[in-house]
């Protein structure tokens, strides 16, 4: 008799369009456990996800095809040429470029050192206003930190401190702007021009505390002097006045 009953129970489940999960909807305790509705939602969600991924993969495939095609064509020719000239430069050439810049600006003194291998580190002292630590990779500037003229730029063991920031808000702001300038002055074919234009821009901070803002005409805004220098005209602006 048990066999007869079990046959009766087994048959309707096979006919159901959602197969075994469809039985969940027949469960009388559905009001208490929202299992069935959750199941339906999960099903819809995974359906949508599949649809979107197929669209996205279609789009990405188009793009990646183009880019890889570009790389194929260009990298083979340009890479071996461009990289050796800009990334691997002899140290005496770098010394030479830095020396020339040092002589160009009398109010700026540049001290070059190589504490860790071939990468040069510059300590730039601008008048009696500020000091800048410049970390170079070949002739590319990797990182700059601006500090006050009387702030300590060395760690306890006498090395240049390239990690800690200035104690003063003004110089923290100028550090941010200097980092922006690094990204702005880019010319991979002529790295010495980049360093020179960066230093020219940096030199405009000589009058950090003396120049009023070119837009609002005031010295202070939120307690800070005009910390921004325009990349082309080198005019002084407050951070919020420059737009």
């Amino acid at each position: 008799e048990l066999e007869r009953l079990s046959n009766l129970v087994g048959k309707p489940s096979e006919n159901h369009p959602l197969h075994n999960s469809g039985l969940l909807s027949l469960d009388p305790v559905q009001d208490k456990t929202p299992l069935y509705s959750q199941l339906l939602q999960a099903y819809k969600w995974s359906n949508k996800l599949q649809y979107h991924t197929s669209l996205a993969s279609g789009l990405l495939n188009q793009q990646s095809l183009k880019r890889s095609a570009n790389q194929m064509g260009v990298s083979a020719k340009r890479r071996p040429k461009a990289q050796p000239t800009t990334l691997v430069l002899p140290p005496h050439y770098i010394d030479d470029v830095i020396n020339r810049i040092d002589r160009m600006f009398p109010e700026m003194s540049i001290h070059l050192s190589r504490p860790n291998g071939t990468s040069a580190m510059l300590l730039v002292t601008l008048g009696k206003v500020l000091k800048v630590i410049v970390v170079m990779r070949s002739l590319f500037i990797d990182r700059t930190i601006v500090k006050g003229f009387h702030e300590n730029v060395y760690t306890e063991d006498g090395k240049l401190d390239i990690w800690s920031k200035s104690n003063y808000q003004v110089f923290q702001k100028v550090t941010d702007h200097a980092t922006t300038a690094l990204l702005h002055y880019q010319l991979p074919q002529m790295p010495d021009v980049v360093v020179r234009s960066f230093m020219t821009w940096l030199r405009s901070y000589m009058k950090l505390f003396q120049a009023p803002c070119q837009r609002c005409g005031k010295f202070l805004q939120d307690g800070l002097p005009p910390t921004w220098r325009d990349f082309r005209t080198l005019e002084a602006f407050h951070d919020t006045c420059r737009q």
């Binding site: 009696k128 206003v129 006050g148 003229f149 009387h150 003004v170 505390f209 003396q210 009023p212 002097p225």
Partner: peptide
């Protein structure tokens, strides 16, 4: 006191 500056005449206006 204006702490970041060390030359008096530079930052007087400020």
């Amino acid at each position: 006191e204006y702490c970041p500056c060390v030359v008096a005449t530079d930052c007087w206006n400020l």
